[in-house]
Amino acid sequence: MSADAAGLAVVTNQGGDSVSLVDLQAVATGALPAVREVAVGRAPAGVAVDPAAGRAFVSNAEGRSVSLVDLRSGTQTLQREVGAGPVGIAHDPVRHRVYVADWYRNSLWVLSDDGLNVVTEVAVGRAPAGVEVSADGARVYVAERDDDAVAVLDAASLQVVDRHLVGSHPFGLRLSPDGATLWVTNVLSHDVSVVDLAQGAVVATLPVGHRPYCIAFAAGRAFVSNQYGDSVSVIDAASRQTVATLPLVTYPEGIDSDGHTVWVVSWMDEQMVGIDALTLQRTATVALGRNPRGFGRFVLAE
């Protein structure tokens, strides 16, 4: 494990009640062991890394709790009960908050990032899933799966200030690296909605593979994991044209990038696959725990 927690992937193993901490430098050099499994709460799904503090926040869907994992020591340092079905999770280093979508309570929990204490609970749409926070911490975006919408919350007032209708059953979402657009996977319409945040409107709907799950950006491209398509769609972020469909993994779910390599979690095969963002070649395969998901931002760049 690298001492500074850089170059790490933190993948939730929903069937193993654990997270796999993957040392990406050790994977690249072939050094062993590259993976350490750390116990968290029951059935963890969502994850949000905090690179500056070397820690990760994990939603334990069945445990109805949130875990704080210290990545330097590789231990869970805190676990607090939160709601009825925590799934999507995001960290805001500006306001020192953790946002957690509650699948059953149709709400967004706001927690302090140090003690995981509840600040408040905000009502949102039905079956809230993915959560993203703008880089300045001013806006929070929540995919409202069963309302086919994305809620926009003002972080200062914690009010829903806007709502975008997207495709059918939005689940994962990711801000483009420039923060100008929000990309949303629509599980049942098999496409991605691109929301222009300045215009406040959906400006493109891009067909992808079957049952898209989440999105990562690298090298000017968006990479979309297609759960039931056993593939990753590669989309040129500027032209919004699909440039490749990579048939690499079975039931791909969580997807994230360190800027050079795109890491995709294969739920069925219980491994993480590395794809070079430029050449689109598979560069690494890492064994994970049982039923891994990695829903959220799970990679700390080197």
């Binding site: 929903q14 069937g15 059935a43 799904a45 869907a61 069945e62 079905g85 799934v87 699948w103 039905r126 079956a127 069963d146 059953h169 599980v187 049942l188 739920w267 069925m268 039923n291």
Partner: peptide, 22 residues
């Protein structure tokens, strides 16, 4: 009530709990 409705309405057949099994 929502969960019950989801069981009864075919249009909501894609609703599900949080943990997929294999």
């Amino acid at each position: 009530t929502i969960a019950l409705a989801a069981l009864l309405l075919p249009g909501m057949a894609f609703a599900h709990g949080p943990t997929r099994q294999k």
